[in-house]
Structure formats: structure tokens, C-alpha cells
Design a protein around this nucleic acid. Structure first.
Lengths: 127, 127, 127, 127
DNA sequence: GTGGTCTAGACCACG
DNA sequence: GTGGTCTAGACCACA
């Protein structure tokens, strides 16, 4: 897994880590059962504080994406093949999607264009 | 326009205001040329500080969604019918969409289900 | 003289009026001794408050560009042919020019390009 | 970097801060990658509120002059050597230059004198 | 009456 | 220790 972070972005680093890992799983680059780098390892690679990585992993754990063993470190717990989403996820997700689509609409992105772009992006996640 | 805010949300209030206004425009509830409530008025309505509203309006102005006139306050400047998006918008938007779609994929939302939900949401924006 | 104002600009209207009149004089469209429209006339033309026009004229009077007679209204008092600037003008002007040139430099506008553009603009003021 | 502010000026303090920083970069006193003082530090130095500095930094960030990092504070992002200006900058800049040159013309500053002063000022920005 | 500026101070998020 | 958010209130600029 090859993560790329922008330390100067306005997006918090811990969230970028989360986003990149989620994308990697969506792409099929990482699957259920695969191990993640140790927090200290990842922190060292990017020259960031390991607490930051910790926070990202904690977020992912909270969202049910990974599980953390004291011994074997972080392991991916779910991917596209792990079944339907947990209760509550979809509503929250749809709310965020609603805002994003509203934004596209207001800025004049054509409805079909939007759907096409979504389909293309999803196609990139076909494992 | 009827905005609803959650003052206890982790989402900053000024961003909620922005989101609600963008949604209202996408829905066709508000159109190009329509006036927005004055900053102090809106602040009073929600029991929040007018600086917070100010920040939301400033954000919308920077994004080209509204224009601000010393005399008549804030006015909607663009809606779905105002033409194609400005340069740079689409790339940024797609990046955010990519993350959101990756998240759906990882949590097991079916690809077709995702597209269907997007289409439904967009349908709701048909004015 | 054909003034064009943008009522939604972030630049105050009274200053836009001032700017347009100064430009008109620089272009040679208006000369020393020429009358300006009455404040009420100008206000009516643009649908703005006549106090706003008043403020613009007052500014111009203060800067020595026009003089105001109760009877004959506002009249242009100086143009390019009226001799050298008053004491104090040049220093203040250069200070503003300094900032503007610094901005161009920082944003990567080539030094020669800047001078060329200035010359072109000045050429447009040759009466 | 040694900034000097006039707290009694009619020019907003946050804009003076912006102007001084832009000038410092133009002069070569500060370059791409150089850190700026923290908002609270700078505010303390001048006896002003940190929100005021915040606004200045925010302006500079929006104009692409600095980037802001949660950890290391504000850092200069562009200087004269960072390539050509972004789209839209030059038009806006020329519009302001037009007004400034018109003013010089009306006040009787000789055309050659104006160009000479511009060249001298630009010479001062040669790092 | 509108928004803009500045001050002051509290609390939180990030790293 | 850094910036970000929010509140509260004063005063000014603009129209």
C-alpha cells in the first residue's frame, strides 16, 4: 500500500491517512485480513507524530474498517466483500452525499455528467 | 428559505449554514438574485453570533455562490442555471467524491445501489 | 462622460465614481473647466443615493481635482495640463504604487512586462 | 522580517500586515519556504488582537502567497521565482494599476517621470 | 440598517 | 504550541 499525504493541506493529516486507507481498500489493493503498517513505522515514513497515525487508526477502528490487536497490530476487518453496511452508516453517508451533490448542482455540473463521473470513479474500485 | 442547524454537531456552524444554503439553491428554493437574510438577522434567529454567519457568507462569496452588497445585503449569485463551473472546481469536487465513494464501497454499499441513491438525490434537486 | 459602476463590487460606490471621473480626465474626455453632472442627476442615473455622489465629489474636491460652486455645480479644476502635483501627493502616490508593484513582483509578473503594461496604460491617457 | 504598522491609519490593520509581507517578499527579505511569525506572536508584538493577524494571513492564503500548516504555522508559498501569475490575477491587477496611473496623470505627474519611478521601485525589488 | 473592523477571551482540534 | 471556532460587544463605513 502506497499512501501519499500532503502535510500542508487544510485536510487534517489523520483524516488523509484514513482516506487513503479507505481508498486502498476500495481499490482492492488491500483486503480483509491484510495487515497495516505499525503506527510507529507509518509515522516514521512520513515524518509525522505517531499520535497522528494512532488517531487515524482509531477512527478506522471506530468505523469498523480495521481491528487492532496488541500483538499483531492493525488488520483490515472489512472490505467490499464483507457484506452490507452497519446500521446508521448509510444515513450518515447519504447526508454527506446530499451536500456534495447539491454543491455540484449549484456550480452548474450537469446531472448526467455527475452520474457519469460517479460511475467512472466506482469503476476504478472494481477489484 | 428554512434552514435547520444543529448547534451541537461536530460540523462547524458556519459550514452548516453554508451547506444548508447550497442545498436550498440546489433544490430551487432559492434562485439567482434572491436575497439572503442579513447576517445579524440570521444570527438572531438561531441564537448564534453574527460573526459566525459572517464567516459562512464569506465562504459562499469566495466560492462564487453569493455576492454581498453593502446596501442590500447578501444575494444569490449563481444557481444551477448559471452555466458551467469555474476552472478548478470540478477537480476538487471529484477528489471529495472519490473519497465518499470509496467509503461506500468499503462499507459494502452495492455499486448500483450507490448510483441509484445519487440519482434519487439529484432528482430531488430538479427544480 | 460615460461612467460605468458596479453596484455589487467590493469597491465602495463613491470611490468607483471618483475613479471613473479621474480616468475620464486622464483620458482627456474631460478637461479643466468642464462641468460635471449635478449630484442629484448622477444619483438618479444610477439609482443610488445622492449622498453617495456627494461623498465622491467631496473626495475629488479634497484632492484638488474639482471645485464646487453653489451656483454652477461641480467643475473640473485640474487635468494633465494643469502643472505639477501639489506637495504631498507624490509621496502618497508612490507609496501606493510601491505596494502594487510589490504585489506584481510576488505573483511572478516579469519586471519588463510590468513596465510595458504601465506604458501601454499611460499611452491610453495621451490626450 | 521587520514590519511597521500604523495603527491610526485609515487603512485596515490586517491589510497593512498583508501589504508589508508582500513587500518583504518582493524585496527578497523573505522567500518561498520561509516561516512567518505565529499569529499570536505577531499580534503580541504589535499590541493588536490575534484575530486581526488571522485575517491578514487568511487573505494571503487565499491569494496563494502563503500556506498555513497546523504544526509549523504560516510559511511563504510563492515569491518572484515561483513562476507566472495565476489566471485572473493580471486582469485585476491591471485594473488597479489603471486607476493609479490615471490619478498620476491627472495630478500632472509627467509620463516619463511615472515610468522612471516605477522602474526605480522595481529595481528595489531586485533581490 | 447594512456589512466591515477590531478587541477580548474561552474552548477545541491538530500534531 | 499552533491555528480554528465561537461568543460578545464596540465602533465605523457605506448607502
Amino acid at each position: 500500500m502506497n499512501l501519499s499525504l500532503d502535510l500542508d493541506s487544510e485536510v487534517p493529516i489523520y483524516q488523509q491517512i484514513r482516506d487513503r486507507i479507505v481508498e486502498a481498500i476500495a481499490c482492492g489493493e488491500a483486503r480483509e485480513g491484510d495487515p497495516l503498517p505499525s503506527t510507529r513505522q507509518l509515522a516514521a515514513d512520513f515524518g509525522i507524530n505517531f499520535h497522528t497515525v494512532n488517531k487515524a487508526y482509531d477512527l478506522l477502528r471506530h468505523q469498523g474498517v480495521i481491528r487492532i490487536n496488541r500483538k499483531s497490530g492493525a488488520v483490515i476487518r472489512r472490505d467490499a466483500a464483507s457484506g452490507p453496511p452497519e446500521a446508521g452508516f448509510t444515513d450518515d453517508w447519504e447526508e454527506r452525499m446530499r451536500v456534495l451533490l447539491a454543491e455540484a448542482t449549484v456550480h452548474g455540473l450537469d446531472r448526467d455528467e455527475v452520474v457519469r463521473r460517479c460511475e467512472t470513479l466506482l469503476e476504478g474500485f472494481r477489484s
